[in-house]
Simulated scan of single mutants.
Amino acid sequence: MPSARTSLGFSAADRLHRSAEFLALQRKGIRIQCPHFVLYAGPLPHDIERSRLGVTVSRRIGNAVVRNRLKRRVRECFRLALRQSIPAGTSLVVIARSGAGELASSMIFSELAAGVGKIAIRLGAERT
């Protein structure tokens, strides 16, 4: 039985690292727009069972403190709830839009949950 730490953890293997992975999802993945985020999702060829996350926050969002806080909050949403909402093996890229740095954690979660719900529906429709 896996412990809660391993199932809810977020290690380096759970992240997208290479720009080629980000670009592949942006070219071939599903795109969903939210008021403060753009989400791209789809399978990457070498990720069969692991869902991974990549977060992009540009300097337009705010200074380094604001950008890093936003990335931590997005990762926490993915770790706690969003990963279970998408099919296994689906990678997700979250791009922050202007105004995202001022959002409360609950608003970030609600926007991302709505977007991931749409992604899950579209991925389910494509696989059938």
Score class of each variant (00 low, 15 high):
Phe22Cys: 02
Leu44Glu: 01
Arg50Trp: 00
Glu49Val: 13
Gly101Arg: 04
Ala113Cys: 05
Glu49Thr: 13
Ala114Lys: 12
Arg97Gly: 01
Ser110Pro: 00
Ser58Asn: 09
Ser91Trp: 05
Ser51Phe: 01
Leu92Ala: 09
Ser106Thr: 10
Ile61Pro: 04
Gly99Lys: 13
Arg75Pro: 06
Leu53Trp: 08
Leu44Cys: 02
Leu39Lys: 06
Lys71His: 03
Ser110Glu: 13
Gly89Thr: 05
Ala120Glu: 10
Ser106His: 12
Pro35Glu: 09
Ala12Phe: 01
Arg79Lys: 12
Ser58Ala: 14
Gly42Ala: 04
Val93Gln: 06
Ile61Arg: 06
Arg27Ile: 02
Ala88Ile: 00
Ile86Tyr: 02
Gly62Ser: 08
Ser106Lys: 10
Val94Asp: 06
Leu39Trp: 06
Ala13Pro: 00
Asp47Trp: 02
Leu92Gln: 05
Ala96Phe: 04
Val74Leu: 05
Ser106Cys: 04
Val55Gln: 02
Gly62Tyr: 09
Ala24Val: 06
Ala20Gln: 13
Gly117Ile: 00
Phe109Cys: 02
Arg59Thr: 05
Ala41Gln: 10
Leu82His: 06
Leu103Ser: 04
Ile95Gly: 00
Val94Thr: 10
Ser106Ile: 04
Val55Lys: 03
Val94Leu: 04
Lys28Asn: 14
Ser105Ile: 01
Val94Asn: 09
Leu25Arg: 12
Ser110Asp: 10
Ser105Ala: 14
Gly29Ser: 09
Cys77Gln: 14
Arg31Pro: 03
Ser19Trp: 11
Arg67Gln: 07
Ala120Tyr: 01
Leu16Pro: 07
Leu23Glu: 09
Leu39Gly: 14
Ile48Gly: 02
His17Asn: 01
Ile30Gly: 00
Arg15Gln: 11
Arg18Phe: 08
Phe22Gln: 03
Ser91Gly: 14
Gln84Asp: 15
Leu23Ile: 04
Ile108Leu: 02
Arg67Ile: 09
Arg69Ala: 04
Leu23Asp: 08
Gly101Phe: 11
Phe109Ala: 03
Arg52Thr: 12
Arg73Thr: 12
Gly99Trp: 13
Ile95Asp: 01
Ala13Val: 05
Phe109Asn: 02
Arg50Leu: 12
Arg60Asn: 11
Ser105Arg: 06
Ser98Leu: 13
Lys118Ser: 12
Arg83Asp: 08
Leu53Phe: 09
Ala41His: 07
Val38Glu: 14
Pro45Val: 06
Leu112Pro: 08
Cys34Tyr: 00
Leu23Ala: 13
Phe37Cys: 07
Pro43Thr: 10
Gln33Phe: 09
His46Tyr: 10
Leu53Ser: 10
Ser110Leu: 01
Pro45Ala: 13
Glu49Lys: 05
Arg27Pro: 00
Val55Ile: 14
Gln84Thr: 07
Arg52Phe: 11
Tyr40Lys: 04
Tyr40His: 15
Val66Arg: 05
Gln26Ala: 14
Ala120Asn: 11
Met107Glu: 12
Ala12Cys: 01
Ala104His: 10
Ile86Ala: 05
Pro43Leu: 00
Arg50Cys: 12
Arg60Lys: 15
Leu82Val: 04
Asn68Trp: 01
Ser85Gln: 15
Arg67Thr: 11
Gly115Asp: 07
Phe22Ser: 03
Gly42Leu: 08
Ser19Thr: 12
Leu53Lys: 08
Glu102Gln: 13
Val116Ile: 13
Ile119Val: 14
Arg73Pro: 02
Leu80Arg: 14
Ala113Ile: 00
Lys28Ala: 13
Gly42Lys: 07
Ser58Asp: 07
Arg18Cys: 05
Gly115Asn: 05
Ala41Tyr: 08
Arg52Ile: 10
Ala41Gly: 15
